[in-house]
């Protein structure tokens, strides 16, 4: 995850509290989604950014996961996300995201 984004996530967690924050990802690959999810839960696996060694343990989902999809107005989801649903390997993304959440 971009170092600047790590900093912002860390600041939001401090400002609003970890329990009141959900990180929503839009990564196009399972691996990239998994890395971002790991960064905001267990800490930056590359040890390069502000979240290195900082296990925030935040709730994290990908926009294409069913838990998120059912919370969104279907019309808006169709306009904004449905095209990408056809493109992305959703099963791979769900698998990566679930694997990270199970470590919490």
């Amino acid at each position: 995850m971009d170092l600047e984004n790590q900093k912002r996530v860390k600041e939001f967690a401090e400002k609003y509290g970890k329990d009141k924050l959900i990180v929503l990802l839009g990564a196009a690959e399972g691996e990239a989604a998994g890395l971002a999810a790991e960064t905001v839960t267990l800490g930056d696996p590359t040890y390069a950014g502000p979240l290195a060694g900082v296990p925030l343990g935040l709730q994290v989902y990908h926009i294409c996961e069913p838990e998120v999809k059912e919370e969104i107005d279907p019309k808006i989801y169709d306009e904004q996300i449905s095209m990408m649903e056809m493109v992305l390997d959703i099963d791979d993304i769900i698998e990566e995201m679930t694997a990270i959440r199970e470590q919490l």
Binding site: E29, E31, A32, M83
Partner: peptide, 17 residues
Amino acid sequence: AGAGDVAAANYKMIAAL
């Protein structure tokens, strides 16, 4: 580097559109 096949992703998006 985890960024996938950028060209292929573009083509899939065009097709999905």
